[in-house]
């Protein structure tokens, strides 16, 4: 696509800007996708400069005030700890959290998407189910982890279930918003070629819903990650995990290591966000 003059940018739908006509359900998360990538050297330079200022500024203040590590760890110490311990200790816990997250998310997202596709076909079913979905969206699923521990023992299943319960409704509520969009002219177009119901779903309804489905997947993954880490803080499996490490290191006031874990979690969250940003750019750039 050719360069778009900045004064016209609002007129041209792209993944960068949120279009005005997007119809949304009770919870609209599409604002989360409106990241803008840096364009000029000045922008990139400013971003790097700010990051460096925060990093070294903090380091400087902590050294100057002679703050002990157990009060606030120094950024350079955190990075050094992370580099030294990553392969021996942290990689294992990262893997534990990731596997819980990925398994739960796969289950939750699949079920959420399927349910969204199903209920939007039947307005009656949607009306009946909607209140329960809302309850599930607003309920912190971390609360169920200790309960599930009691029932299911010390494996990873309680956390997988909690992640699925947190991610699923988020995927469902956004995907349902997408499936509820019906463009009658486009359905008529497909029907005029003799399309059957399944073809209309696959070739019209699904692509039409895809931008909102991707938003749902992204919000669901963020909630899933929060639930995985939070659940581990409450009641981890015997394998540990990043959340369990947070509680462990903070209880021993080992703040360098605590900071290193925080850094890993932050990197994980940002990676997930960036991943979905590019998925959206690739598969839904025609809109949202």
């Amino acid at each position: 696509m050719s360069e778009v003059p900045s004064e016209l940018r609002d007129e041209i739908p792209s993944f960068d800007s949120k279009p005005a006509h997007v119809d949304h359900g009770p919870i609209d998360w599409s604002g989360l996708t409106s990241i803008r990538t840096a364009k000029s050297a000045l922008e990139i330079g400013s971003i790097v400069a700010l990051a460096a200022a925060v990093f070294f500024g903090l380091e400087g203040i902590l050294r100057w005030t002679d703050t002990p590590t157990y009060v606030f760890p120094k950024p350079i110490d955190i990075v050094r700890t992370l580099a030294n311990q990553f392969t021996d200790v942290y990689a294992h816990h990262l893997w534990v959290t990731m596997s819980e997250f990925l398994a739960g998310y796969a289950i939750g997202a699949t079920v959420g998407l399927a349910l969204a596709a199903l209920i939007t076909q039947k307005p009656f079913a949607e009306k009946v189910i909607a209140p329960y979905v809302l309850v599930m969206v607003t309920m912190p699923m971390i609360a169920f982890v200790p309960f599930l521990r009691l029932k299911m023992g010390f494996g990873s299943w309680p956390l997988i279930i909690a992640v699925a319960l947190a991610a699923g409704p988020m995927v469902m509520i956004n995907a349902a918003t997408g499936f509820r969009r019906t463009d009658l002219a486009k359905i008529a177009l497909a029907r005029s070629y003799g399309a059957n119901t399944f073809q209309i779903f696959r070739k019209i309804r699904f692509p039409l819903a895809l931008p909102m489905i991707i938003v749902g997947f992204m919000v669901g993954s963020i909630f899933g990650l929060l639930t995985a880490v939070g659940g581990e803080m409450v009641a981890a499996s015997e394998e540990g995990g990043l959340g369990e490490r947070l509680v462990y290191y903070s209880s021993l006031a080992r703040m360098d290591e605590f900071g290193a874990i925080i850094l890993i979690i932050a990197a994980l969250g940002v990676s997930i966000y960036v991943l979905f940003y590019f998925i959206g750019k690739r598969w839904a750039s025609w809109e949202a």
Partner: peptide, 18 residues
């Protein structure tokens, strides 16, 4: 619909934007 005999052209072009 009689897809093999009838062709339809709509009010706006009705292309699929994706």
């Amino acid at each position: 619909p009689r897809p093999n005999e009838l062709g339809m052209i709509f009010q706006d072009a009705n292309l699929l934007p994706w």
